[in-house]
Amino acid sequence: MSEIDDQLQNLCKAIKNAVPDVEKQAKITNVGAKVYEKVLKDNTPFNPHHVDTSKASHLRDSIVVQAKNMDGVVDGSNVVGFDTGRKTGINHDRIAMFSNNGTAKAPNPKGKNFVDKSIEQAKPDVYKAMESAWHNGMNGGGND
């Protein structure tokens, strides 16, 4: 694990211990999620020739932030990802997986590994944003 990974883990543990209110934790982690959302949107492959968005939005326009964990439990965390298509019928999450990982017929798509690169690129700014939000009183009370 890298140094920034350790720092992010330690920050999340510290926030969870110092801010017992799940809603306040979610506000702090949402600040970091918004930073990652912007980096992911900027790095998501975009086809300017795909102009008909009446049936399906662009992949980069289907990024969602939710104030719950991967299992749908509200626990103070936020999840950033692509729309799963429950409402629209278009599973952008699946499309993003193919664009990120490639397929047997297209093993090296344009923008391959854009999700992984976005995660690594965003980590330092996510850390700074969450730490700043926590120390600037977003926790609703005193902190260490």
Rank of each mutant, 00 (worst) to 15 (best):
T53S: 04
V115F: 11
G142R: 12
A18P: 01
R94T: 09
L59E: 02
K110W: 06
N69K: 09
R86A: 10
A56Q: 08
E37V: 04
S62F: 05
K41D: 10
H135V: 03
V39F: 05
S118T: 06
Q25E: 11
V31N: 04
Q66V: 13
I15W: 01
K27L: 14
G137C: 10
K24R: 15
D116Q: 14
H49R: 13
N136T: 12
V74K: 13
V51N: 06
I15Y: 02
E37H: 15
S62G: 01
D61L: 01
M1Q: 10
A14H: 14
S118W: 07
D83W: 12
S118N: 03
K27I: 12
I119H: 08
Q7C: 07
D93N: 15
G137E: 05
N101S: 14
A67I: 02
V115L: 13
Y127P: 00
P20W: 06
I28Q: 02
K68D: 08
Q25L: 11
V65W: 00
D93V: 01
K128P: 03
D42K: 07
V74I: 15
G142A: 09
F82T: 02
G89M: 13
T88Q: 05
N10R: 10
K105T: 09
E3R: 13
L11Q: 02
G72V: 08
A56F: 04
M70L: 15
L11G: 04
T29Q: 07
N78A: 14
T44S: 01
N108E: 09
Y127W: 10
A96H: 11
T53V: 13
S118D: 04
V35M: 08
K24T: 12
A26F: 06
K117T: 03
N17C: 02
Q121V: 03
G142Q: 10
D52W: 00
A26G: 09
D116K: 06
A14K: 14
S77W: 09
K123W: 11
N30Y: 13
V64I: 11
C12V: 10
P109K: 07
R60Y: 14
Q9D: 15
I119S: 04
L8K: 09
Q25D: 08
A96W: 12
D125A: 14
G32Q: 08
E131D: 13
T103F: 05
V22Y: 06
Y36M: 15
I63H: 05
S77C: 05
S57A: 13
E37G: 02
A56H: 03
P48C: 08
I119M: 14
K55T: 08
L59V: 06
A33S: 07
A26Q: 07
A129C: 02
S2P: 04
T103A: 01
A96C: 11
F46I: 02
